[in-house]
Design a protein around this nucleic acid. Structure first.
Length: 200
DNA sequence: TCCCCGATTACCT
DNA sequence: GGTAATCGGGGAT
């Protein structure tokens, strides 16, 4: 097993801070991760897609670590996660934001609406778009490539934590402080409390 | 089958 | 700062 595969075999809450500063190589664009969120498995995390057990959509989360879990959000955006923990246990790290470190021109072309380079991969949907990922990349193996993940030489010593963005209900509270980010980085997406649940 | 609503973004004021 | 856009998952019927 590679060092990367071993590192990703831990639960996502342990892996998430290690991914800060890691570089994800997508299609012609690479992003240095600055903000991530951890999600746990069945029965332990009400904010997780895997909370109620495996479904066709979430099957990758229950597979081996080091795979990419890609899903459609709000009918219009793709979000991507790095699957953690051994096969049979669902946990994953949602990649929320990063800085483009390779393929700047290609990232700009993919993200025409961005006004600054810091906005190119600021937000999970934007990050996925900048990298050129597609739904067909769901399940892609980040250890054998061509999409691949590079951990930093040394883990970040300082990072912020907070409740997760955009998670409504109990999963979005202080009980789950599973959002991790690099302090002061301009590419960290704006913190947005989960929207109040609409009443009937 | 039906139907609500989400791990969001972009554009408007 | 407010909100329209947009569609598939999965619990409910």
């Amino acid at each position: 097993m590679t060092a990367l595969a071993a590192a990703l075999s831990a639960p996502s809450v342990e892996v998430a801070p290690l991914l800060l500063g890691a570089v994800l190589h997508g299609r012609g664009v690479a992003v240095r991760l600055t903000e991530v969120e951890a999600y746990l498995g069945t029965g332990e995390d009400p904010g997780s897609h895997a909370h109620r057990g495996p479904t066709p959509r979430t099957r990758v989360m229950f597979g081996p670590p080091g795979r990419l879990y890609v899903y459609l959000s709000y009918g219009m955006h793709l979000c991507c996660n790095v699957v953690c923990s051994p096969r049979g246990t669902a946990s994953a790290v949602l990649l929320r934001a990063g800085a483009v470190v390779e393929g700047l021109e290609l990232a700009r072309a993919r993200r025409r609406t961005s006004t600054t380079d810091a906005d190119l991969a600021r937000g999970p949907g934007r990050l996925t778009t900048a990298l050129g990922l597609a739904r067909s990349d769901d399940g892609a193996d980040l250890i054998t490539g061509p999409l691949r993940l590079e951990l930093p030489d040394a883990p970040s010593l300082e990072y912020g934590t907070s409740p997760r963005t955009g998670v409504s209900g109990p999963g979005g509270t202080e009980a789950f402080p599973y959002r991790f980010w690099l302090p002061g980085d301009p590419t960290v997406s704006p913190y947005r409390r989960s929207p109040p649940r609409r009443r009937a």
